Amino acid sequence: MTMPEAIDAVRQAFVGLAAEEFDLPPRQAFSDSRSLVMAVHHRPTKSTAVKVISVEVERDPVITGTVVYSHPDGQFVADAVPLTTLRTGAVVGVATDLLADEHASHLALLGAGAQAADQVRAVHAVRPLKKLVVFNRNAKKAEALLESLRDELPGTVMDTAANADEAVEDADVVCCATASTMPLFRCESLKERVHVNAIGSYRPVMRELPQELLATAGVVVVDQVEAALSEAGEIIRAVQSGVLRLESLVELGAALGNPPLREGRTVFKSVGVAVQDWAVARLKA
């Protein structure tokens, strides 16, 4: 399937989530979030997706696991790795299309791991890229990522950055895809009009975004408030410290139904929810 197909499927799934079409229990985490179980049931189609994954940050690939999609006519089993990178990219595509300036064309990508390529593909699908800058602590991985994407992005200027602040300073869109436990960049390094996606942190001890960004952003969108408050380290810290009001968080499904203004700095924070897995798996059913 193509990235635009996945983006459309995930967009409709979040609209359905806002319309209460899904039974979506909280994600189950074991062994300090090294083992995760995610399940969802779509009542209109009587279909269910269940994903079981193992996460080891020092391993390559970081994620291993299986997705089972079942519906009244049967079921299938899929490798969780490509499905997870695709559905995570797709939700970033949905958020970027919703929140980024319509003329955005310069992407800064922080992180060059397994999720990185689909982050680029997703942003490019909704905001064709003229420039891509990548920062990774291992510069060779950043260079290898760019080389792997050259044929897909003809005409796009590509470069690596020496640090995260340098990478983001002129970007229209920023994507964070790391396992960091500390903010990756300073808020003042960003342009006044920029959209920032963060998909790397999924545990309370992890965070990629500076609190100042969350405190001053025009809108902070999350995939699901309940999930963000239990798993997204930067959201948890910002709410607990009082720099981000809980009631100001907007769920993606609600934002799709009532789009916020595209102005100033906007943020999308995702920890990943099972409706994304369901949406992409359903395309293969």
Rank of each mutant, 00 (worst) to 15 (best):
V120A: 10
V123P: 09
H124W: 12
R127M: 08
R127K: 11
R127Q: 02
R127D: 11
P128G: 08
K131C: 08
L132Y: 10
V133N: 02
R137C: 11
A139S: 13
A139E: 13
A139Q: 14
K140F: 14
K141W: 09
K141I: 07
E143S: 15
A144E: 15
A144Y: 12
L145H: 12
L145T: 06
L145N: 05
L149H: 08
R150A: 14
R150F: 11
D151V: 10
L153H: 12
L153A: 14
P154I: 13
G155F: 14
G155R: 13
M158S: 12
D159N: 08
T160N: 09
T160V: 11
A161Q: 07
A161H: 02
A164G: 14
A164Q: 04
D165H: 04
E166Q: 13
V168L: 05
E169D: 06
E169V: 01
A171V: 05
D172F: 05
V173G: 06
V174T: 12
V174R: 01
C175K: 07
C176A: 12
C176T: 10
C176R: 02
C176W: 03
A177N: 09
T178M: 02
A179C: 07
A179D: 03
A179E: 10
T181M: 08
M182T: 15
M182S: 15
L184K: 03
F185E: 09
R186Y: 02
E188N: 12
S189H: 00
S189C: 02
L190G: 04
K191Q: 06
K191N: 11
K191L: 04
K191R: 15
R193D: 03
V194S: 04
V194I: 09
H195Y: 13
H195Q: 12
N197P: 06
N197S: 05
I199Q: 06
I199S: 10
G200S: 00
G200E: 07
R203C: 07
R203W: 10
P204M: 02
V205H: 14
V205G: 12
M206G: 08
M206I: 04
M206D: 03
E208C: 05
L209S: 01
L209Q: 00
P210G: 01
P210Y: 03
L214H: 01
A215Q: 07
T216F: 01
A217V: 01
V219I: 05
V220A: 04
V220T: 09
V221I: 15
Q224Y: 04
Q224A: 13
V225W: 01
V225K: 13
V225N: 07
V225T: 13
V225M: 03
V225D: 11
A227K: 06
A228R: 08
A228G: 13
E231A: 12
E231P: 07
E231K: 01
E231V: 06
G233E: 04
I235Y: 06
I236P: 05
